[in-house]
Amino acid sequence: MIEIKGVSKAFPGRKGSEPVQALKDVDLIVRDNEFLTVLGPSGCGKTTLLRVIAGLVPHDTGEVLVDGKPVTGPGPERAMVFQSFALMPWDNVLTNVAFGLEMQGVDKKTRELKALELIEMVGLGGFEKRLPGELSGGMQQRVGLARALAVSPKVLLMDEPFGALDEQTRRLLQEELLRIWEATRTTVVFITHSMEEAVLLGDRVVLMRPRPGRIDQILDIPMARPRSTHLDSVESSGEFTAMVGLLWSNLRAMHSDVRRARQAGQAAATKP
């Protein structure tokens, strides 16, 4: 279980400008074995939230607990999947997947055996000797997923992992991720800017709003599991359409709020 209590985080602004409040008083509990998706417009702090959980960015106030222990830095029980894949171009698939285990000091034979198992699991069997540059974007992200799963994490942190992929590849990987998740039930925190993706994958959707970044509301996704076997009918169901519609009306309201605030700010600035 991840407990986030009253977490705030500000980044220093560019020269002269005010600091940017990326997160303000965020409270959130991520339950064990749940698939939590985080959605929001750009600047809402969703990626910062993930990086705080990962321990890559220190938070200013509040606390983040993973199974009761405070997060002070990165830890092996939390593994991350990156939007840019973050594969080492000089190492082959096998070495890339085994990287987390290598950093934990696992001996070469054991870690390569484990890596091979996961390469098979993400559907890349036979590609273990290829370099990342020889793979398509979708295959590269499968490597990224396998690398994260290889360390047997308690929580999988995914930062818009399919954001850089084309539509068809994204669909295939969503299906693949759901299949793997339904088999392993690892806790997942999944950042996305796609409403459809948030609803399709998640048990709950956390909707965030910008300036300052905070949680707007948390919505339960009622659709039954497993979903990977019949994604198409899930997407054409009334529940799916209703959820996406609800998220969109909220996001649209947020956008007009932001616009109104900006206009008000401009008006105030131009007043003599």
Binding site: P74, G75, A79, M80, G100
Partner: peptide, 11 residues
């Protein structure tokens, strides 16, 4: 992001 990745995995 490569450096971040490495830190994330405990390097």
């Amino acid at each position: 992001s490569l450096i971040e990745m490495a830190r994330c995995f405990g390097a």
